[in-house]
Structure formats: C-alpha cells, structure tokens
Amino acid sequence: MSSGILTSARLRLPGRLRSAYIPVLATAGLLAAMFVAGGVRYTGFASGQVVLNVFIDNAFLLVVAVGMTFVILTGGIDLSVGAVVALSTMVSASLMTDGGWPPLLVVPLVLLIGSALGLAMGCIIHYFDIQPFIVTLAGMFLARGLCYVIGTDSISITDPAYTAVAQARIALPGEMAVSVSVLIAVAVAGAAAYVLHYTRLGRNVYAIGGSEQSALLMGLPVARTKIAVYTISGFCSALGGVLFSLYTLSGYGLNALGMELDAIAAVVIGGTLLTGGSGYLAGTVLGVLVLGLIQTIISFEGTLSSWWTKIFIGLLLFAFILLQRLISARRA
C-alpha cells in the first residue's frame, strides 16, 4: 500500500514544480515577449540601456514593492506605502533645503521615521486585531497629512552632495550606465530574497501566510514576525522615498499618488498570492520590470496615450489573478 502513496507523490512531482513556478515563469515569459515585440517594432528598443533605463526609472518602485512582498506574503496589505514615500521626500527636501541638514543625517532619520510608522501600524494590527486594510489606510492619511503640514508646495533639493549622488552614473561595459538608486534597489532586492529564503524570519513569514493558526500551534513567533513585516514595509517605503527624491530632486506632498496600487500590482503580477504564503521575490522584480516596460513601450509607440498603461496593468492583473485562481482550484 505504501507503494501507492509513493507513486502518487512521484506523479505529483512535475505538477508541483509547475504550479509553484507557473506564475513567475509566466511573468518572465511575458517580459521576454514584450521585449522581443518592442525590439521588432521599434528601432533602438533592443538595447541593454533600455532595460537599464527601466531599472533607473523604477528603482524606487522596486524597493517599495519588495516591502509590499513581505506584507502580502503574510496575507496582509499595506496601503500606506505611497504616502510614506511622499512623506520621506518631503522630510528630506525640507530638512536639507530649508533646514540645511546634511544628507548623512537626513537619510537615516527618514528611514527611522518610515520604520517607526510601520512598527506602529504592525502593533495595532496585531495586538488590537484590526484589519490591515483599515490600519494602513489610517497610516496613509496620517503620512499624507504630515506632508501637507510640512508644506503644500514642491520643495526642490539643492544640496550639492545629494545632487551629485543623484546625477552620478556608474558605467557598465558596453557603454551602458546605471544610477546609484539602481544599485541600492538591486541590493535591497537581493537582501530581501536572502532573508525570505535563508533566515527563520523569512520562513516564518511564509508560514504565517500559509496558516496563522498553525504557525501559532507550531510555536513560531507570530506577533514578532507580523510586526516585523510592517516595519520592513515602512523601512522600504522610506528608502523608496529617498530614491524617489534622488530621482526627482524634490519633495512634494502629492508625490507617489497611488503608488500603493502599482506596488500591489507588481507583486501580484510577479506571482505572489494575495492570500499569502506563496510567491517569490524574483517574481516581484519581474513584476516591476513588466510595469516599467509597459510604460517604455507606450512611450516608444508615441501615439498611444499614457492611460493605456493603467488599462494594460488592469488587464494583466485580471489575467494573473485568474491564473492564480485556476492554480489554487487545481490544488484543492
């Protein structure tokens, strides 16, 4: 009889590989197809620099989406990320431009504010058992409100060191170059992937997303992990804000409006289940690249208007949500 169980397990093996990796592979395939299609259609598209520009233009989104991946893997959601990005640009700009603070002091302070906000939200979510949706919504109002308290106009950043970093380009072979932000974003993504795969914190994140009840019964530190996840998301949003201010060299309360939606979309398109417990950081990176490449293609097309981006993202969301639904239905 045991042989029956064994065969059934073996037979399921290829199926398992497929179902765990299908969404990520689908996203990778989509990305490749978009790149090839763009290369065939537009001259000057099929170059390494176009890809790197996608990275340069979306470094901040990548960092924010990395934080969002942690939250979504536990089955939560963080609506405050866009507002925290805006708050970070605002705090940076006002402290450096109006206050004359050095960047070396401002950046750690901004990261601390973001993390503290995330920590507070995580505590409320866990200890008072209020839905993440509502708590992070309040966090979003709070962060945007703080932006407007600091100032309602855009503040440009003139600190020489900061602008130097913003404009610096690191040359790569083949006459290509990337910005400092890209390096930071890639480093964050790499570190996050390491944490998720190789540390207990990361595995606990997946366990809670799979079943919070079971995680508790297995003796895992559920409270600590859930709070850590929102803190990480807050930190990533603040760092995303720093990169955003490097990108635009200004701070503005209306920055990054709706970025939470882009981040959620990138995570979902990257194959992470919104119910938690399943997904890869690599998928999120691919998801961000897909969003970025859509914008690139639309700008290359020239005649297509910018709102097609949103419609395409919506369609992709639908396709990937349907795909996830089919996979989970097949598993059940």
């Binding site: 959601i77 949706f133 939606l261 959620i264 979309a265 979902v268 919104l274 208007s305 910018s306 709102w307 097609w308 981006t309 949103k310 419609i311 395409f312 993202i313 919506g314 369609l315 969301l317 639908f318 949500i321």
Partner: peptide
C-alpha cells in the same frame, strides 16, 4: 472581493481617461 475589485480600480482610471 478586495482583489477582484482592484482590477477595475486600476483599469477603470485608464478607461475614464480613455
């Protein structure tokens, strides 16, 4: 529901601008 309605939340803005 939160995911299902996210689709039109994102695409609908594009549709309105379209």
């Amino acid at each position: 529901p939160i995911i299902a309605t996210l689709i039109i939340m994102v695409a609908g803005r594009g549709l309105a601008q379209l």
